[in-house]
Design a protein around this nucleic acid. Sequence first.
DNA 1: AGAACCACCTGGCAGC
DNA 2: TGCTGCCAGGTGGTTC
Length: 283
Amino acid sequence: MRGSWPHASSTTMPELPEVETVMAGLASELTGRRLTGARLRQRQLRWPVPRDLAARVRGAQVLGMRRRGKYLLVQTDRGWLIVHLGMSGSLRLVPSVLPPGPHDHLDLLLDDGRALRFTDPRRFGCLLFSDDPWNHPLIAPLGIEPLSETFDGDALYDLSRGRRVSIKDLLMNAHLIVGIGNIYANESLFEAGIDPRLAAGRLSRRRCGLLAAAVQSVLRRAIVAGGSSIRDFVGVDGRPGYFQQGHAVYGRDGETCGSCGTLIRQMRQGGRSTYLCPHCQKR
DNA sequence: AGAACCACCTGGCAGC
DNA sequence: TGCTGCCAGGTGGTTC
């Protein structure tokens, strides 16, 4: 099975489920290990990697890992690594002697001869170091976790009052709700039967309930699908299997809706592709 | 404060 | 065949 699944796409698109999957796969491997240093090949990511990264992590013991939105937090006894995979980033555990590829920007060296290798062709990701990540300017303003107990229809209703932006743009605003990118925003709105263009503030409390449930359902299913491939991606490939799962509307322009048979439409919304079933999704 | 838009980056692909 | 140019995506920053 390892590395043998069909590659529908050569790129991953890390949203909350993938970050969760990456964390689950790495936590057991990294916790308790010591970092012996870092090799920095390309500092210019979304934010520059700290020049003194190697010095900061040398000798640090990994205490655990957390996720906040799409940010991955690695806690050590010397401080925290803050990692974002952007849209093409991946983390793999490799033998530290494995020669780096062109987009393998940095290695965190482990005390067992392996390296945690950060790869990111488009360099939208970042890797930072912080003594206090919860007050870090990238982390502190983040919104509610959609898989937390406090996220439900009422929370979504409260968040959306008075907002004139489309409900899809609201779902993707990480300062309000974290972890939902273009793919899962489209999928959640289809599942809830809501037109993505509807002004967020016009959603009824009842439909907020449907949408919150759909968001959680879509994200949980993706995590379950990704979890089954943890061993594979940690060892070799860096490509969780959930990405291969079928989407109901995303990327299916011109195909028929699996629910009613109507043709799925693609449109532009705020510079991004929106996909919807004009019959199943109502204003 | 909220909304709309831009910048960042590269691989992949359509179209000529 | 090879070139050009557009598109995909997340999100901080800028502007209005």
